[in-house]
Amino acid sequence: MNNRLLITLISAVLLGGVAIGYTVLSGSAPEQAAHSVPTGTGPRLMVLSNGKLSTVSRDDPAGSRQVTEQRCDRAYSAAGTISCLRPVGALKASELAVLDSQLKELRTVPLTGFPNRTRVSANGRMVAWTLFVDGHSYAANGFSTSTGVLDTKTGTLVESLEEFAVEGMPQRPVDTNFWGVTFTADDNRFYATMSTGGHRYLVEGDFAARKVRPLVDADNVECPSLSPDGTRIAYKAAVNGDPQQGWRISVLDLQTRKITPLAETRSVDDQPVWLDDKTVAYGIQRDDGLNDVWAVPSDGTGTPAVVVPEASSPAPIS
């Protein structure tokens, strides 16, 4: 993706206004209007700051942020397509808003449930989302999710992956849930989590064929995130196979099936994001209820570090 997203997000700041004096972990760094944004080049991240779409320099993540008035519970961006799961309001249900790089609303999809995950394919064509229909935690018993996919090119909408056939299962079990989609480079294939019978599997999906295939040698894989080079999946794995004990961020090599637990030993209930082929980011909630975006090397070495304080839903942009 090019710099248009940053430019247009800044334009939205001018139109919508910002609240000055955003407090970050290391002190007070103001949200800045367009006239005070640094003009230098470099990697940036799109994040949610207090629920608002924002951008921040990855080289100075605790510095000033360009903040729009676009509110989302969860968001992601790729190649000029922004997926925004809008909050549930007192008088309204949730919805998916697909925005372009100028924050123009291209399509909305009414949804039922509480926003939880969203992803956009690398070229911006495919958009996926997950909501809780019943319950609010993957560690709870009896929760229910709804996961859908939108092809923004053709307009094809799959409201629930439960419409798909499951290979090896002539009849889909009634307790099946799907969540945490991540797309491959061809836009047709994807990975997701499927739970049934007390097990949580990594499944490979075929959008055109309307089917998913459980990878039986990849149990306990939740919220997968495919690496930019397409060779590995970062995910959260329930400690000792029990979500009640929390989750550990790990990386699965799709060819060798080698699993590498990452250096983050705290419980992480998030869908990881690859900042590049060597770095995995994720959100952790603090004791005060706020979230920080952390990152750690993908090879199991290093030490976790805060990438963006008081933020969530990171997505790398350039």
Rank of each mutant, 00 (worst) to 15 (best):
Y76S: 15
E69R: 11
G113C: 02
K104D: 03
A97Q: 10
A90S: 11
C72T: 12
T108S: 13
R107Q: 12
L103K: 03
N116Y: 15
T108H: 05
L91K: 08
S64I: 14
Q66V: 15
P87Q: 01
S83G: 14
L96A: 01
L96I: 02
K92L: 11
I82R: 02
C84W: 13
S94N: 07
S101N: 15
A93H: 12
R86T: 15
V67W: 10
E95F: 00
L111H: 00
A78H: 05
K92T: 14
T68A: 14
I82Y: 07
A90M: 02
F114Y: 13
I82H: 05
P87N: 03
A79W: 08
T108W: 01
V88G: 00
V98S: 09
D73G: 12
F114I: 08
G63Q: 08
D60L: 11
L91D: 11
V109M: 03
S77D: 02
L106P: 06
L103H: 09
G63D: 07
K92M: 11
R71E: 14
L106W: 06
S77E: 14
S83Q: 07
G80E: 06
P61K: 04
K104H: 05
Q66I: 15
A75H: 04
V109Y: 07
G89F: 01
T112N: 13
L111Y: 02
L111T: 00
T81I: 10
L99C: 07
A62C: 00
S101E: 15
A78Q: 09
G89V: 01
L106H: 04
Q70W: 09
A62F: 08
R71D: 04
A75N: 03
P61F: 00
Q102P: 01
S94V: 03
R107S: 08
E95A: 08
F114S: 11
F114Q: 10
D100R: 07
A93E: 12
Y76H: 11
I82D: 02
L99I: 05
E105H: 09
T81K: 00
A79V: 07
Q70L: 13
A78V: 01
T112S: 12
E95T: 01
A97W: 04
T112E: 12
P61T: 04
V67F: 08
A97H: 07
S101W: 03
V67Y: 10
E105K: 15
D60H: 12
R86Q: 14
P87D: 05
R86S: 12
L85A: 13
L85R: 15
F114R: 11
R71S: 13
D100N: 13
Q70V: 14
Q102E: 10
K92G: 06
P87C: 02
L85D: 05
R86E: 14
K92I: 04
T81Q: 08
C84K: 10
R74K: 15
G89L: 14
L96M: 02
A90R: 03
T68M: 10
A90L: 06
G89I: 00
L99N: 03
V88S: 00
D73S: 13
S83V: 11
K92N: 15
P110T: 03
D73W: 06
S94Q: 05
T68I: 07
G80M: 05
T68N: 12
L85M: 14
Q102V: 01
D60T: 12
R71W: 03
L99P: 06
L106E: 12
S83T: 13
